[in-house]
């Protein structure tokens, strides 16, 4: 064990953050201000998510971090190591084995359970910020449920692009009350926001925490004649053949060759281990480069 207090933050701070989390869960979608601490990593690297994770982790937890679905990017690896070192918790890349999952910009493909917590890293928590720069005004708009402006943004999308072009950070209304930014997850993930697990959102620089309790109703905003559509690349994963997962597109050579693969690396490798093979894939174990 290290010389750090468990999970880096002192107990008073964790208590303060837990109070904010509980308030957030009690008022789904409401942005609770909290005294965000300096963390040993720069803003934009998930300081909000890290503080929320620190406040919910217990020594018995198993921790997983994904960055755009991947467990093996610098950001994911360094946060995972951070808690390995400061909390001594077990870590995993397997979604099913994790009890706390911190994520940047994705929801895992595998359906989450009631005994799991999903912690989102949030850059800009205020969904109305795009059109209303004043925080005083946006807080008032939330408190009075004045959300017409949110549809103005969608209107602008349709008038400029012929369809709602917002493809990530797509605004939702939680439990029929607060309009919430689901963090920059692709809108493909929006339907998954109604889930069994607890979802916590932390914005470190903006000092806000908000939450979606299990099974809370989460509706993506839209127009009657332009209904919300969860979209993804019209393709199957080239590695594991999955047709239901969100895909990353990779340019693989100078001739314009491309490859689509699951953005959720754990989902993809689990399928490949089970023997699924995509169009450009090879059975697992033979592609180790």
């Amino acid at each position: 064990m290290s010389d750090y207090n468990f999970a880096y933050l002192d107990e008073q701070t964790k208590r303060m953050i837990r109070r904010a989390i509980l308030k957030g869960l009690a008022i789904p979608g409401y942005q609770v201000p909290f005294a965000s601490r300096e963390m040993p990593m720069p803003y934009g690297w998930g300081t909000g998510g890290v503080q929320v994770s620190a406040a919910v982790l217990t020594p018995d937890d198993t921790f997983k971090v994904i960055d755009q679905g991947a467990d093996d990017t610098t950001n994911a690896v360094s946060i995972r190591r951070f808690f390995e070192k400061t909390a001594g918790v077990a870590v995993t890349e397997a979604t099913a084995e994790a009890s706390v999952i911190q994520t940047r910009h994705r929801i895992p493909e595998e359906v989450l359970r009631a005994d799991q917590i999903l912690v989102y890293q949030v850059p800009i928590p205020e969904p109305l910020r795009f059109l209303e720069p004043s925080e005083v005004e946006t807080r008032k708009m939330h408190s009075l449920e004045e959300y017409g402006l949110m549809h103005v943004k969608l209107y602008e999308d349709i008038s400029q692009h012929g369809a709602i072009a917002t493809s990530y950070a797509y605004p939702v209304k939680v439990e029929g009350r607060y309009v919430m930014d689901p963090s920059p997850i692709p809108k493909f993930d929006n339907p998954k926001l109604e889930m069994a697990a607890i979802q916590l959102f932390g914005a470190g620089r903006e000092q806000r925490i908000y939450a979606v309790p299990p099974y809370a109703k989460v509706v993506s905003l839209d127009f009657e004649d332009f209904p919300f559509e969860a979209s993804k690349a019209d393709h199957a994963c080239d590695l594991c053949g999955a047709e239901d997962s969100y895909l990353d597109e990779l340019i693989v050579d100078d001739a314009g060759g491309r490859l689509f693969m699951c953005s959720d690396t754990d989902y993809c490798s689990t399928r490949r281990k089970a023997g699924h093979v995509g169009a450009q894939g090879v059975p697992l174990g033979e592609d180790a480069a």
Binding site: E146, G148, L149, H151, V152, Y155, I158, D222, F223, E224, D225, F226
Partner: peptide
């Protein structure tokens, strides 16, 4: 359109 949407209009057309 903003005032219309503010009072609940939800049909783009």
């Amino acid at each position: 359109g903003e005032r219309l949407m503010a009072v609940g209009a939800r049909h783009y057309g």
